[in-house]
């Protein structure tokens, strides 16, 4: 109670998200053919550790893996430390198999971790690229995501917590846009 989003906000997010998906479809060809900077080396599909480092950065991923100590980023633009954000030139290159595999990797990581901004952005971007109708594996992964968000939300100390909007956004998109209605906030 007090942590759930308003219905108006949920409706607005679903409408905006639908527009975002249409724009991705419209611009995908353009962005997928743009040359990537030479420092952007996308991991192979099977390279789970590589993808975690690519999306979350060494600062988040390797620090979590190494007993919770935090590595200081050397620069705000050092993407190997901070992770690559979901630039359109990157996500437009991902086919559905990769989108789903990456969702599975990041949702699996999230089961044992906090919601950091890098993760929120990537989860949003991957949901925006996830084609409907969903295949059963996709259903299962996004439901796991919404449940984890709900679980984490119950642990927040107040509605001022900076993680609350992101958790509610992800729950809203899974439940309302992807029609997992039993998970929706009323």
């Amino acid at each position: 109670e007090g942590l759930s989003p308003s219905l108006g906000w949920q409706r607005q997010q679903v409408a905006n998200f639908s527009d975002v998906r249409q724009s991705i479809a419209k611009h995908r060809r353009h962005w997928s053919t743009q040359t990537l900077d030479e420092n952007v080396v996308m991991p192979k599909l099977s390279d789970e550790e590589g993808w975690k480092t690519f999306c979350l950065g060494e600062t988040v991923y390797k620090a979590t893996a190494a007993s919770g100590t935090h590595l200081e980023p050397s620069s705000a633009l050092d993407y190997s430390k901070m992770g690559f954000p979901p630039f359109l030139s990157i996500v437009s290159r991902l086919n559905q198999t990769t989108v789903l595999a990456l969702l599975e990797i990041l949702v699996g990581w999230f089961e044992e971790a906090e919601l950091v901004p890098q993760l929120g952005r990537w989860l949003y971007a991957l949901l925006a690229c996830l084609e409907k109708p969903l295949i059963p594996e996709a259903h299962s992964i996004i439901r796991q995501l919404a449940r984890r968000c709900g679980q984490l939300r119950t642990t927040l100390p107040s509605q001022e917590d900076t993680r609350l909007p992101a958790l509610n956004l992800l729950i809203c998109l899974v439940a309302r846009y992807f029609e997992q209605n039993d998970l929706a906030d009323q």
Binding site: G2, L3, S4, P5, S6, L7, G8, W9, Q12, Q13, N16, F17, V20, S23, I24, K26, H27, W31, Q34, P85, P86, F87, L88, S89, V91, G120, R121, Y124, A125, A128, Q159, L164, P165, A166, N168, L169, D185
Partner: peptide, 30 residues
């Protein structure tokens, strides 16, 4: 035309990141 140029301004390489950040920034509780 103007609409096309507006659209390409919005849909730069960081468009998804901006869309996410905007959604989070406008959050309202019930």
């Amino acid at each position: 035309g103007a609409a096309q140029s507006d659209d390409s301004d919005i849909w730069d390489d960081t468009a998804l990141i901006k869309a996410y950040d905007k959604a989070v920034a406008t959050f309202k509780t019930a």
